[in-house]
Design a binder for these strands. Sequence first.
RNA 1: GCCCUGCUAGCCCAAAUGGUGGAGGCGUCUGCCUUAGAAGCAGAAGGUUCCCGGUUCGAAUCCGGGGCGGGGCACCA
Length: 888
Amino acid sequence: MRVTATADTPLHQLVKWTVHNMATTIERYNPKEAEGRWQKVWNERQCFAASDDTGKPKYYVLEMFPYPSGRIHMGHVRNYTMGDVIARFKLACGYNVLHPMGWDAFGMPAENAAIDRKVHPKTWTYENIAAMRHQLQMMGLALDWSRELATCDPEYYRHEQAMFLDFLAAGLVDRKISMVNWDPVDHTVLANEQVIDGRGWRSGALVEKRELAQWFLKISDYSEELLEALDTLENWPDKVRLMQRNWIGRSEGMRFTFELEDEAGTKLEDGLTVYTTRHDTIFGATFCALSADHPMTQKLAEGSNEIAAFRAECAALGTSEEAIERAEKKGVPLGIYARHPYRPGVRLPVYAANFVLMGYGEGAIFGCPAHDQRDLDFVRKYGLDVIPVVAPRDADPASFKIGDEPYLENDDSQTTMINSDFLNGMSVPEAKEEIARRMEKAGIGERRTNYRLRDWGVSRQRYWGCPIPIIHCDDCGVVPVPKKELPVVLPEDVTFDKPGNPLEHHPTWKNVSCPACGKDARRETDTFDTFVDSSWYFARFCSPHSDQPVEAGAAAYWMPVDQYIGGIEHAILHLLYSRFYMRAMSKTGHINLDEPFANLFTQGMVIHQTYATKTGEWVFPIDVNLDGPKPVHAETGEPIVIGPSEKMSKAKKNVVDPENIIEQYGADTARWFMLSDTPPERDIEWTEAGAEGAWRFTQRLWRAINEAGHTEAGSEPGNDDSDAIALRRATHQALNAVGDDISALRFNRAIARIYELSNTLGQVLKQDKRTDGLNWAIREAAVILVQMFAPMMPHLAEECWQLLGQPGIVVETAWPKAVEALLVEDAITIAIQVNGKRRDEISLQKGLAKEEIESAVLQLDNVQRVLEGQTIRKVIVVPDRIVNIVAG
RNA sequence: GCCCUGCUAGCCCAAAUGGUGGAGGCGUCUGCCUUAGAAGCAGAAGGUUCCCGGUUCGAAUCCGGGGCGGGGCACCA
């Protein structure tokens, strides 16, 4: 074959191929022309509109919706291609498929754009949506665009506001004072990750800790349920379930109260309540410690400069240099003592300590330095006692000592209690049980389960978010906006010339009259965390135009999402919030469902090599010339240093623009590459060579289908037509495997099978002499091949379908059924081992009995030669697999 | 520090329950085709399955120890 083209024509623009040895001239496949054409056909025929025909089995496939940053990136391409393959496959399998798309459209970047470029967040956002919608459409995704939604649309967030009011009424909402990172220059709260070395990432100002009244959703009420239900999510990755389990952080322990006394030994009125999971180590307690923010610390600080100074020090610590400070355990004695409950006359000094958190348990602990690293660090600094109470079973209690490391053995069968009076000789669990019983009996403590999971703070001091539908009245306090006045629409006439939230200094929007008493009042100017928006959008897709948040019938039919696909980075927050939100919506009657995502798949990242100049400046891949012996800058000729492959990021410029790729090769090539080689859960490296390879394959397929299309129709082969039957076997076996692989999301393996069949077909097409039956089998192979790659390369598939003269279009064609009889191989090659070493192989009919195989094998010349002079001790026969002869 | 993961040809990766180490892709090399390059076609090379030990008739796979990479959590009492 030869290409009629000039040397400088980029290969993808070549239009004509001249094929020698063939009478026909094959037009080269031109994705640029074909892709738009087929997208139009699908659109006109409404191929991907989910029908309301609830008689059919449904399948809801969803990829995490994007933030409208303005351009799609390769991560999107990968994510949406995977979902698309499933959507198209399920469609072909006869399901009523829901595959929608929307926009996670609120958030800070829009405000930053407003500040930097003087463009209104709304304008910026909708322009970005338009641009990205166009890019997604270029990918040829099987999306039901009639269900598109944007979270910044009042038609969306009005329901969010209404549900918030229902949550409020149902006791699922709390307003609490909480500690936040406050940027005094920008007048806003910063998330932890926005604080860099103690300074605001934008203003550079020193961040303060400030107490602010914030709205919370009471997710912690559901700690146990969210934890337990993880066991039911069998089709979630174990990794994600484990991460959520750790995040919820259930611990079983005891809460109990020490009696307190002052320096002189006089009993104080208040006791000290602590939380512990190691009540078995109570005899090892040598001090108690309170958080700097503990009420008792606060009270004692009033009378002590030293304690007050310590509290100030802890507050200043804030989020900054946490890592450094963390290493040093510090405290200050409070001048009070805790009476040991089981050691009469022994009292434990009480400290305020920087490593005790107010937010967990009781904000107070007892220290057992022998068996806790932090406590040991602390006592070494302040010269307190160390009493080991757990020791190896065979250790001598009298001589067992703790050095620089605490004794942490957690295998209970290896340890025993020592130095612990009535607990001595017990195992750790026995000791825990004994202490719990005694404390409960004495009425000084009770068993208690604690969770690390905190309530979800949803207030953001931001403009571009969903307004929280609340009015603050001096007389009535917090007043919900009446439902009939919803939505509380974000005002558009705002400016960003002043720091802080524009809603704060909006003259008319903020000032309203109280819905309860009519007096002057103020709107809540905080807006919701955008994770609220994304906690129910998947439910909204079921009935996106309803005047209810979710239409009961639609949700009952479509939910849960059958296959959810997204990045592992959302393993905890988004997925946990969504699980909680479904429960909250169920409690308030908006839906009847606890778990929103039946199957979860977390795909890997797209990575790329990094390129830099000698001076360390990052260079875009597109500007690097790799053709020469050494990489150089395409324009300046400067040498380029190739760095490791990392997640594509603008900062390191190791990005490839999907639109460029689609322009250059077409969407099908980009989609195909994204699915090839690498298993979908792993990171995939984008390489130019790989993309070229995918591109070449589209052309190879096109040529093969062309040739097959020009093959005579033939007639169905008989069983004696071995070539034809062999091809049919290959076809149907591939079909079977590809269906299984797509169902299991093993796209890379499905693709390998498609390559395999395509190679087989290519070989067969080279044969000059063909029977009628073989011609028939060739056409069958071509048709099925097209159907198999249609979910991955849908445009090319339609083009090929037409070329083969098949009726209709591929997306409206049912997935073919493999012929069972062709799936079974009748001849099998069995390997023969002698003493575990492979010596020969034998071809036998499939399904023979062990004895038949054994006798056939033992007769082989090779085998007899190897066995000469040896005694056969044992013959292991694994039917259809292997025979191992043990001899000696 | 704790907990998850991964390690197979130069590279990306396949190898049901332990059963012939290789499906597929990229690259490399040789030849054909070509004025030439690319594409195309025909063929080839390439291995301590990260290391050590164990279980087994048999280990890439299971167990123990170690090495390197990736990720999560990390004052949570």
